[in-house]
Design a binder for these strands. Structure first.
Lengths: 194, 194
DNA sequence: GTCTATAGATTGATAGAC
DNA sequence: GTCTATCAATCTATAGAC
């Protein structure tokens, strides 16, 4: 059956999320109006409500989608045998994944406080699940004598913070290639725990 | 001469900035209204404009004040002789200073994009001035053979990012004391560059 | 599915009384 | 210096025509 004229559900939906992602990253969730998002998409503000029940859901879907992608991409990675190789794989995966989607990474950190309390809990659980994977690697490696870490929990957070820092300065096509960046950071991580 | 009844310029001014700092940190600049700030201070919204020309100036004054304090506190520190000792002093100073004022640190990072372009430039210059001090230490130490760094600029940013990460989890009165935290992070920094 | 129009609330900032 | 009152703009979200 022919589609109704002006019906673009399957392409407008993703475009709404893309526009929201871009604008939230640039100006912040609270500073962006539904009218701005609509303008970016090329529709009127009212039409957005065919794709999201409200503005909050738009933000939550972006953050949950990002965390889901992160965990499923990580789950598809091979798990090396030794703790050192596992830490290397984690570090390089983290850098690569995060550099591929800087906007999602940015709002996932910056807009946490604009989630409703229930939505915040959901995202936080996913984040802790991810960080727990690094913590497990460090603890196992510490017990096996492969790492020297003063405090597993703090070392986990310190490594994540250091790796996340890449996103503040890296631009593709810049001075360093992705493999070079991975190598430099892996070198620092490796030395910091051995 | 007796003060006019209801005149509290010298105490209300700081209280306005304190309230703005607290609320901006909790909810974000764009999400906080002048009426909310006024309520926190205990005055009506109109009275705020005796202390700030507008909302933007309130944000800018907080960020500039923070950077000024950072640079002047750093300038008062003793400068050790060796690169390693200088890096240790910088790392511990950075942690201590930032843990003492978590709210200012938080908004100084989160609210940069809500500054007007001119105000943004001013803050960025101050931030680069501070980071340049760490970069100088690393470069001098590298040339003297005290450090092994693959890339001075990136190592600077990686160390800053790692140290900044303390603020995401540290709570005074928690499991670890400030000197313990300083020691753990200094250990990681030291190992990462040697 | 998108439009126009609008309800109802809230915003930053100002004016003028005290 | 603070108050009340208010302006003009903007916001999210909805209703109803097409």
């Amino acid at each position: 059956m022919a589609r109704t004229a002006g019906s673009h559900s399957d392409i407008t939906g993703p475009r709404v999320r893309e526009a929201a992602l871009s604008l939230f990253a640039q100006h912040g969730y609270a500073a962006v109006s539904m009218r701005q998002i609509a303008k970016e998409v090329g529709v009127q503000a009212g039409a957005l409500y065919n794709y999201t029940p409200d503005k909050q859901s738009l933000l939550f879907d972006l953050l949950r989608g990002h965390m889901d992608e992160l965990l499923s991409a990580r789950a598809k990675e091979l798990v090396p045998d030794t703790p050192v190789a596992q830490l290397e794989a984690f570090s390089k995966f983290h850098i690569r994944f995060h550099l591929e989607r800087p906007l999602s990474v940015f709002i996932s950190y910056m807009e946490l406080r604009n989630l409703t309390p229930e939505n915040f809990v959901t995202i936080e659980e996913l984040r802790r699940k991810y960080e727990g994977q690094l913590e497990t690697i460090l603890r196992d490696g510490h017990e096996a004598g492969a790492f020297q870490v003063a405090d597993t929990k703090i070392t986990t957070l310190a490594i994540i913070a250091m790796l996340n820092g890449v996103n503040t300065w890296y631009r593709s096509g810049g001075r360093l290639s992705l493999p070079e960046v991975e190598a430099i950071y892996w070198d620092m991580v490796r030395k910091a725990v051995t």
